[in-house]
Design a protein around this nucleic acid. Structure first.
Lengths: 199, 199
DNA sequence: TCATAAATTAACCAGTTGGTTAACTCAAAG
DNA sequence: CTTTGAGTTAACCAACTGGTTAATTTATGA
């Protein structure tokens, strides 16, 4: 059957992503990944010599996807309000498209925080300097120690948490999955407004 | 050596909590739990007939701890501002004391959302009616559809996320663990102020 | 065409893991 | 004293799991 479609390797990576996202490193099974990719276990080890290596590849890809756009937005040329709007829009849509990605990263970093330094060394994951300067310029209160950090933490929390905790939050708000999805759709505008008020 | 101290069962539950919080259901090993509890594997199965049953007990306990106080605060007699302050203070301190608990719940619910209904049936996990009414009374804008839900989601997100994503956020803000802990300590006041401004 | 490398498979293996079993200890009740 | 039941142990087991091997097929390019 060969690799008519996407290369076998890519198919493996895609499938492994969905499995690892849902079950984590320890819960995932090489056999299941192989089955879903339409190959057998030996083939899997042919392309990725170990589960650990396959996982690393998936994790690196996930982290890149999760952090990738953020840096670009935050270090872009846009004025502060536009930048905030971009960040919120980007994050919410990106996360909504890949359910489980945020929870996956949080869970695996909880167990092995060193995976961060492993891939990013001592370099800053995301350079916040430009963003911090824009904040301080917009409102003197963000010159106070930690004030900019709180703003950033708020921004991330408001965007990420509702996606991360969907199973719990949707039940707390006793909404159906469809209702909750609509609710999430509204949030980008809601969050942007809330944050802009803080400037 | 008998059970001089806390009953063996309680010791198992405490130990199993820390192990499950860190490694999840699939990552936890009965042998490790037994070792940490100072017993052997057979004893473990004597008190809990299966890993699944032990896990269920731990998970139920964790969920109770996580949601327990919330309902009481939100349905208490306090006025809205005091209630918000109480919620923030309660949540932040409770989560800070049990590292991994939030990530544990999020991870396991991600995989098996049905665990929620399993334990709470169709009953509301937390009754938000009183809180919603107080919000609507404080500011007419919270009578709009979903407005109260957004406020609640914001409140939870701001409190929980920084604890949940500590490994990632502390690196993004390039802070040491000690610095980050101080940062978290500041947040209760910061969040409360932000939320009260929204009324 | 033929040699060489890539892709693929079935069978197998050793270590791990949840769980069981049968025997043993010991304190309390009768 | 002995019966009884909870507590405890070492040894064991079957299933699972990541990983390997050796042989085979398929593509490739000289």
């Amino acid at each position: 059957m060969k690799s008519l479609d996407a290369s076998t390797r890519d198919r493996i990576l895609a499938v492994a992503g969905t499995v690892f996202y849902q079950k984590g490193l320890s819960g995932a099974r090489m056999q299941e990944i192989a089955d879903l990719a339409g190959i057998n276990k030996a083939m899997l080890h042919y392309y990725f010599k170990s589960k650990e290596q396959l996982f690393d590849t998936v994790f690196q890809q996930a982290l890149g996807q999760f952090l990738g756009g953020i840096g670009q937005v935050l270090n872009g040329e846009a004025a502060l309000p536009a930048k905030i709007e971009q960040y919120v829009a980007y994050t919410t849509t990106a996360l909504a498209e890949t359910p489980g990605l945020a929870a996956f990263i949080v869970h695996e970093l909880q167990q092995h925080p060193e995976r961060l330094s492993k891939q990013f060394g001592d370099s800053r994951l995301v350079n916040l300097d430009a963003f911090r300067q824009q904040l301080a310029a917009a409102n003197a209160r963000y010159q106070a120690p930690h004030a900019a950090e709180h703003f950033f933490a708020n921004m991330v929390a408001l965007c990420v948490y509702p996606v991360l905790a969907q199973p719990l939050l949707s039940r707390l708000l006793h909404q159906s999955e469809a209702q909750y999805r609509r609710f999430l759709g509204e949030r980008a505008a809601h969050i942007t407004q809330l944050l802009l008020e803080q400037l």
